[in-house]
Design a protein around this nucleic acid. Structure first.
Length: 493
RNA sequence: CGAGAUAUAGCGCAGUUGGUAGCGCGCCACGUUCGGGACGUGGAGGCCGGGCGUUCGAGUCGCCCUAUCUCGACCA
C-alpha cells in the first residue's frame, strides 16, 4: 500500500492539490467550518510554537518587548490614514451588533436589530491604527522614545480565495510597531528587523531568501518603504515570507503623535512595523517537502528523532524498551527532542511511513537483531538513506547528523534557487522563460506603468528590488529606458 | 465578484433506461502477524448538502438555494 501523497505526485499542475493534501495528511491543519479559516492541529501548532519561540528570542535580543492591543478597531480609526484605508477597507470583517435574541418564529436566534452599534468595530486586519492611537498617549518627550513593541496576535482579512497557511481569512502572526525620534533611526530599525527575518529564515527554516525593497505598486498600504524577504517554492512560484515597513511619519500625523525634542520643538514621530505570519508554515512545507511528505529542518521539528522499536511480543518489547529509554536519556542530555513510539497498535512499517509524512529528521529503529549485535538503524529524512551503526555513542552521532541535515536541507533549497534564477535582457525571452517559473533578474525602468503592463501580460510581478549583490545599471527590457539595477520578477503566491 | 466543476458512511469514490444504496481505506471484536503503511473471519456505521417540483415511485430528471474546490480579480 503506497502512501497516498505519493500517488498524487508533485507534478506542477497538481502542486496545489499536493500541497493541500500534504498539510492535511501530515496532521498540520484542516479547513474549518468557518469560511476561509483553518484549524491548526496539535502537530502543526507545535511547529508554529517553535517558530514563535525562536523569533520571540530574536526580538528580545534586539531590545523589543511584547504587548497586546485590542482585537476591535473603531471604524473611524481606519479612515485616518488615507492609503491605509484604501488598502484594507475592502477585506475587513465588521462588527455591527452586540446582541442576539430568540427568533420571532421560534427557530434559533437572530441579530437583535435594537442592538446596533453606534460606531461599527472592525476586526483588526493589522494593528497600526489602534496602536498609534495608543502611542499618542505614551509619547510626549524624546525621552519616551524609542517605543519598541511587538504583538503576537490573530488578524482577519476577508480574502476572496483562501489556502491553508498561505492565505486564510484568520491567521496568526506577530506585528512589531516601533516609534522613533529620527528618520534614520526608524529606517535602521526597519532594516534591522528585515535582517532578523532573513537570519531566521535561513538559519532555522533552512530557507534561502532574497532581501529587497518593494516597488510602489507592491508596497504596504501606508508605508513609505516596504522591505521584504522573498523565497522560491519548489513549483517555481515566489512567496513573500516577511515584510518590514518604514512608515515615515504617516501614522504619527494621522494620529497626531508628536514629541518634544531636546531643542524644545514639537516633532512628529517616525515609525516602523514588521510582521511574519503562519504563512511561514506554508513556506516551510512548500520549500522542502517531497513525495513522501514533509521534510522539517531539525531546528524547527517538534521532535527531531523518533525511535521505533521492532518486536514480536511483549518480552521482546520490554527488552527493547529498556535499551530505547537509555538512548532517549542520552539524546535528551544533549537537548535533542526525541519521541519513543513504543505503541503496540501500529506496525513498524506503518510508523516509518507516518513519521516520514510528518517530516521527523532522524529515525532510529531498534529490534531484537540490534540488541544481539549492539547496533541500531539510523535513517535520515532528507536523503531517505539509512545505515546500521554501533549503538554506543549514538547520541553524539545523532547530534552531528542533525546539524548535517539542517545544513543539507538549506543547501538543497539554495541550489534549487540558483538553478531557477536566470538573467534576461529581452522582453520576448522574458515572456518565454516566465512560463518555467523561478526568479528572473531583469532591468525595469522604475515606472508603475511598465510594471503593470508586464503583470497584465505575463502574470509576473516584481518581487523586490534586491538590496545586495552586483547592481550594474542597464536598460529596461520592455521600454529600453534607463534602469538603475536588475529587479526580481516572478509569479507569486 | 466573474468562469468552470463538485456535493452519496469518518476519508476517497461507484451507483446503468428512475424501482428504495454499494466498493476501498479507516473504525470495533477475535485470531495469525510485526526489519517499509500485514492478513483472515465477523461486525458497526447513511434524511444520498438543503428546498420545491415532475412521477405510482427520485441518489438518478427539472428549477431554486447553500457550501466546497480549481482558474481569474484581491492579498501576509
Amino acid at each position: 500500500m503506497a502512501i497516498e501523497i505519493k500517488e498524487l505526485t508533485s507534478r506542477k499542475e497538481n502542486y496545489s492539490q499536493w500541497y493541500n493534501d500534504l498539510v492535511i495528511k501530515a496532521d498540520l491543519a484542516e479547513n474549518s467550518a468557518v469560511r476561509g479559516c483553518m484549524v491548526i492541529k496539535p502537530y502543526g501548532y507545535a511547529i508554529w510554537e517553535r517558530i514563535q519561540r525562536q523569533l520571540d528570542d530574536m526580538f528580545k535580543a534586539t531590545g523589543h518587548v511584547n504587548a497586546y492591543f485590542p482585537l476591535f478597531i473603531p471604524k473611524s480609526f481606519l479612515s485616518r490614514e488615507a492609503s491605509h484605508v484604501e488598502g484594507f477597507a475592502k477585506e475587513c470583517a465588521v462588527v455591527t451588533h452586540y446582541r442576539l435574541k430568540n427568533s420571532p418564529n421560534g427557530q434559533g436566534v437572530v441579530v437583535d436589530p435594537e442592538a446596533r452599534l453606534e460606531e461599527e468595530l472592525i476586526v483588526r486586519p493589522t494593528s497600526e491604527t489602534i496602536i498609534w492611537n495608543t502611542y499618542k498617549n505614551w509619547i510626549q518627550s524624546h525621552r519616551d522614545l524609542p517605543v519598541l513593541c511587538n504583538q503576537w496576535a490573530n488578524v482577519v482579512r476577508w480574502e476572496m480565495r483562501t489556502r491553508l497557511f498561505l492565505r486564510t481569512a484568520e491567521f496568526l502572526w506577530q506585528e512589531g510597531h516601533t516609534a522613533h525620534a529620527t528618520k534614520e533611526e526608524a529606517v535602521e530599525e526597519a532594516v534591522k528587523m528585515l535582517n532578523v527575518y532573513a537570519d531566521f529564515a535561513e538559519k532555522y527554516m533552512a530557507l534561502p531568501v532574497v532581501k529587497g525593497v518593494k516597488t510602489a505598486n507592491e508596497r504596504f498600504a501606508g508605508a513609505v518603504d516596504t522591505y521584504c524577504i522573498e523565497a522560491l517554492m519548489q513549483d517555481g512560484k515566489a512567496l513573500q515570507a516577511g515584510t518590514s515597513h518604514f512608515l515615515g511619519q504617516n501614522f504619527a500625523k494621522a494620529f497626531d503623535v508628536q514629541f518634544l525634542n531636546k531643542e524644545g520643538q514639537r516633532e512628529y514621530v517616525w515609525a516602523t512595523s514588521w510582521g511574519v505570519s503562519t504563512r511561514l508554515m506554508g513556506a516551510l512545507i512548500m520549500a522542502h517537502s517531497d513525495d513522501n511528505g514533509l521534510v522539517l529542518p531539525p531546528r524547527l521539528a517538534p521532535f527531531q528523532v523518533v525511535i521505533v522499536p521492532i518486536f514480536k511480543n511483549d518480552e521482546q518489547l520490554a527488552l527493547i524498551r529498556e535499551q530505547a529509554r537509555k538512548i532517549v536519556d542520552a539524546l535528551e542530555a544533549l537537548n535533542i527532542r526525541v519521541k519513543l513510539d513504543d505503541s503496540d497498535n501500529k506496525k513498524p512499517g506503518w510508523k516509518f511511513a507516518e513519521y516520514e509524512l510528518k517530516g521527523v529528521p532522524v529515525r532510529l529503529a531498534l529490534g531484537a537483531r540490534d540488541l544481539e549485535n549492539g547496533t541500531i538503524e539510523v535513517a535520515r529524512r532528507d536523503t531517505l538513506t539509512k545505515e546500521t551503526l554501533p549503538v554506543e555513542n549514538i547520541a553524539a552521532h545523532v547530534q552531528t547528523l542533525l546539524a548535517d541535515i539542517q545544513e543539507n536541507i538549506y543547501q538543497k533549497a539554495l541550489n534549487f534557487r540558483a538553478e531557477n534564477t536566470i538573467t534576461v535582457d529581452s522582453y520576448d525571452e522574458f515572456k518565454e522563460k516566465i512560463e518555467d517559473g523561478g526568479f528572473i533578474l531583469a532591468h525595469w525602468d522604475g515606472t508603475p506603468e511598465t510594471e503593470d503592463r508586464i503583470k497584465e501580460e505575463t502574470k509576473a510581478t516584481i518581487r523586490c528590488i534586491p538590496l545586495a549583490g552586483d547592481t550594474p545599471p542597464g536598460k529596461c527590457m520592455l521600454t529600453g529606458k534607463p534602469s538603475a539595477q536588475r529587479v526580481i520578477f516572478a509569479r507569486a503566491y
